[in-house]
Computed example of a mutant assay.
Amino acid sequence: MKIVDVKLQIVEVPLKEPFHSTWNPSNPETKLFVTLVEVITDDGIHGYGAACDSSQLLAGIWDTHIRPLLLGREISEVEAINTGLVNASLYAYRPWCVEVAVWDALGKYARLPIYKMLGGVKDKVLAYASTGELKSPEERIKDAERFISEGFRMMKLRAHHDDPFEDVRIIAKVKEKVGDRIKIAVDANQGWFFSGKRVVAKWDIKKAINVCKAFEEIGIEWLEEPLYGYDFEGLAELRRSTTLNIAGGELNAQVHEYRDLIKHQCFDIYQMDVVLSGGFVQNRKVAAMAEAENKIYTPHTWTHGMGLAAALHMAGAVNNCPFIEYCYDPPRWDYTIRDLMLTEPLKVEQDGYIRVPDKPGLGVELNHELLDRYTILRK
């Protein structure tokens, strides 16, 4: 079965309310960006994958690096395709949604969900509610109560004030109120930075160590991205200095960087992203390397419904993924917003688990009518 065509569709869906993410504090999110890839085979199968940006850079190399890589190739040659995308990534921004589309087509051909083709360890994963904005203690306590009522056992809050000890004080108030009814993790968003009108103060190693000590007293589950993602030695020193689990790696690129992160013992929890950092092929390899070191692998998922679906398949395919991120910060970012491109949103069940889609391929259906309405470019 061969690939006979590959298409690109760039979509920008306006949001009803701006979302003030901590990772880009200068520029509130006003649109849901979807870069959709469609792979078509000679058997008439259509596979889909999607990135979470408006990737004009990917469009710029579509005819020179993407179409020649895929056209005429057997759909099963995912390793070779992934290697070609490594080369393409030197010219464009994160082309891994192309590989996801190939896997979706392959799964439909095999009549199997992707996670079963990759290993099929489990059909559901414990989800944690992952917030994205800074809020007052009162608002966060209200959110925590909502998460508890909906079945969540864990939530992740953001630490992104200029004074990180303000974050410590807020999270301590939430922890005091909810007690042991829900576990709390914290994301510092220090692994990478957008520049702009408001640049949040960066943490150095001493500040990170002191913040860790403060969070140790509160009793959080992990601290995510406390230092720049390429400061391997600093991350290793920090991890040795604290009893907290340290997490990160969402935007490190490809398998060799994760090899070095693991070699330096930078993290307890490795959070490679299927769509942002290497596709299924490389995530499977990184998960295996982490497992060999008795470390946790859990995919980063803050993209959209298609990205979450890909991450769920990866989580269901490996042994060392005990939980998964579920991007959820109502009212401005609930699952109906995140999953706008899907005909049905991906929901967490009352026991706190989320099912891995069990239909062939990614196992989700696209809302083509909405995507077509807000398309700004096709190739």
Rank of each mutant, 00 (worst) to 15 (best):
F232T: 01
Q254E: 12
E233V: 13
E233H: 13
W222S: 05
I220A: 01
F232P: 03
F215E: 06
L227Q: 04
E250Y: 06
Q254P: 09
K263Q: 15
C266P: 01
K263F: 11
H264G: 04
R240D: 14
G248Q: 04
T242Q: 07
W222H: 09
I220W: 07
H256Q: 13
K263G: 10
E216N: 08
D260W: 12
V255D: 10
G229S: 13
T242P: 06
E233Y: 15
D231N: 07
E217G: 07
T242G: 08
L251K: 12
D260P: 06
T242M: 02
D260V: 13
G249I: 00
L235Q: 03
E217H: 06
E233W: 12
P226N: 06
I220S: 02
L227D: 03
V255H: 09
S241R: 10
P226K: 04
W222M: 10
L227R: 02
L235E: 02
E224S: 00
N245D: 14
I220K: 06
N245E: 15
R240K: 15
Q265P: 13
D231L: 04
T243P: 12
F232Y: 09
C266L: 04
A236T: 06
L223C: 03
C266A: 10
N252E: 11
E221P: 07
T243Q: 14
A247W: 00
Y230E: 12
L227G: 05
L227E: 03
F215M: 10
D260Y: 12
E250S: 03
E221D: 10
H264L: 07
T242I: 11
R240T: 10
E225R: 00
H256S: 14
H256Y: 11
L261H: 02
A253R: 12
E216Q: 07
E257S: 14
L251V: 13
G249K: 00
Q254T: 14
I262M: 04
G249F: 00
I220C: 04
E257M: 12
E250D: 05
E217A: 15
N245P: 05
L238A: 04
H264M: 10
G229Q: 11
W222G: 01
H256N: 09
E225S: 00
A253M: 14
T243A: 14
Q254W: 12
E237N: 15
G249P: 05
Y228W: 10
I246R: 01
G249E: 00
A253L: 15
A247L: 04
G229C: 10
G249R: 01
E233N: 13
E221C: 10
E233D: 13
A236E: 03
R239W: 06
P226H: 02
I246E: 03
H264T: 04
L223W: 00
